[in-house]
Nucleic acid binder design. Structure first.
Lengths: 227, 227
DNA sequence: GGCTGATTGATATATGTCAATTATTACTTC
DNA sequence: GAAGTAATAATTGACATATATCAATCAGCC
């Protein structure tokens, strides 16, 4: 139970910072700590939102399961992320699936307790509102990006996202399949592979089995901007 | 100033219902009532969010201006809608443009006052959070729809949306250009026109200059489901 | 040594682009 | 107010291209 002291204060722009000890204890008393292996489903779309989840460690993908078995990976989440699955606040249905890419340690917290706190702590509600709004804007970005850019631009975006927001290192080791990269970029895996090859031939990136290195970020940004 | 008594209580699932008279007065004191003509921009993407807007009467489109001058119309809004433009809560930048389709009467309300209320009234923050979350889910729906369906499915979705959520009547008179329909459906106007023709030839819809009638909604739903 | 995932190639198809034509609206001018 | 003219939007057709699909081969791995 003491883990939250280390974990939550750093979580997602300090949403929980405004909670006093009593509130925090209330939220945490019946939390459950769970470890998932790579590939396991942490929360599943269309189930009901009895709990929300805090990721303590590891990397997971957030995906929406669409029509004809096609998925869209909306983002990756890692340490200290808060997952409300879209419906915790409004309709009690989870609107996307979260699934572990590496081993993931996380806490399941009763969402009723969240609601109780929200209704009595306006600062907390305000912080969550801000967080929620940010997610909204991310979603809007994704919508525009996937809808209005050609494949090279989308691939560039995915690579820049991985380097700058997920792995924070330049040659980065990845744990995703080409299929998953493709689902992040809104295309088929074959198309993703072909576009990566293009970038490699142009000397903009270098790739080996599990590693990608971005040789010219400015070029990549140019491709991203051109759409 | 007395207009709010009639207007706001009906607004967007009663977000404002939880405000007492004092709070309501505080929010409303420096509001400004504005009338826009068809085609005029009510709020503009990338400007700063000094105010949020309540639509009192009329029909407006909410659009995100994307790359290469391409737009995506996210939704239409009408009487008693609340417009926070995406950034009122988080980053003070408007993330989409709202523009009048018919004559629109609306109120501009100082967003600082919204923030003050949010920080002292947890119920209000909670209601706004719920509202915001709903918008989030709408956006997710749009993302999936525009990304994973073929044109016929997207056109069907647009028609069903117009009939069931905007005009609420079956032969409905529209004020939108074909370009705007296309921007709702994520395609070019030429493609939209061709798909409409298909539906007309198949006897599923009937269209004249400013009117569309859906002859077989079940067929349309089938097309929508098939993607 | 078989399994899964990655890669490549050939081909099909969805969708966009461009240009030409027609309809519609708006605006003048008599 | 009618008629004509310009401007704008709608429609159609021919064509280009982005992207998906399918099948085959290849590489890594329990």
């Amino acid at each position: 139970m003491t883990c939250c002291v280390h974990c939550l204060p750093k979580a997602e722009a300090s949403i929980f910072e405004c909670l006093n000890k009593e509130d925090m204890d209330y939220l945490m008393t019946c939390k459950r700590n769970v470890i998932f292996n790579p590939g396991e489903t942490i929360i599943k779309q269309n189930t009901s939102t009895t709990h929300f989840v805090c990721i303590k460690d590891g990397l997971a993908k957030v995906l929406a399961e669409g029509h004809n078995g096609k998925n869209v990976i909306l983002k990756l989440i890692s340490t200290h992320s808060l997952v409300t699955a879209g419906g915790v606040i409004s309709d009690d249905i989870r609107h996307f699936t979260v699934s572990a890419l590496t081993q993931v340690e996380c806490c399941f917290i009763d969402s009723n307790r969240l609601h109780v706190l929200l209704s009595r702590n306006s600062r907390f509600a305000y912080e969550l509102l801000k967080y929620n709004n940010k997610q909204n804007l991310q979603m809007l970005d994704s919508l525009i990006r996937l809808n209005q850019k050609y494949m090279p631009g989308r691939v560039a975006d995915t690579l820049l996202y991985l380097k700058n927001e997920i792995y924070n290192s330049n040659p980065f080791n990845y744990k995703l399949s080409k299929q998953e990269f493709a689902e992040m970029s809104g295309m088929t895996k074959e198309s993703f592979i072909r576009n990566m090859k293009e970038l490699e031939v142009s000397g903009i990136i270098k790739q080996s089995r599990n590693e990608i290195e971005i040789l010219s970020e400015p070029e990549l940004i140019k491709i991203s901007k051109n759409g």
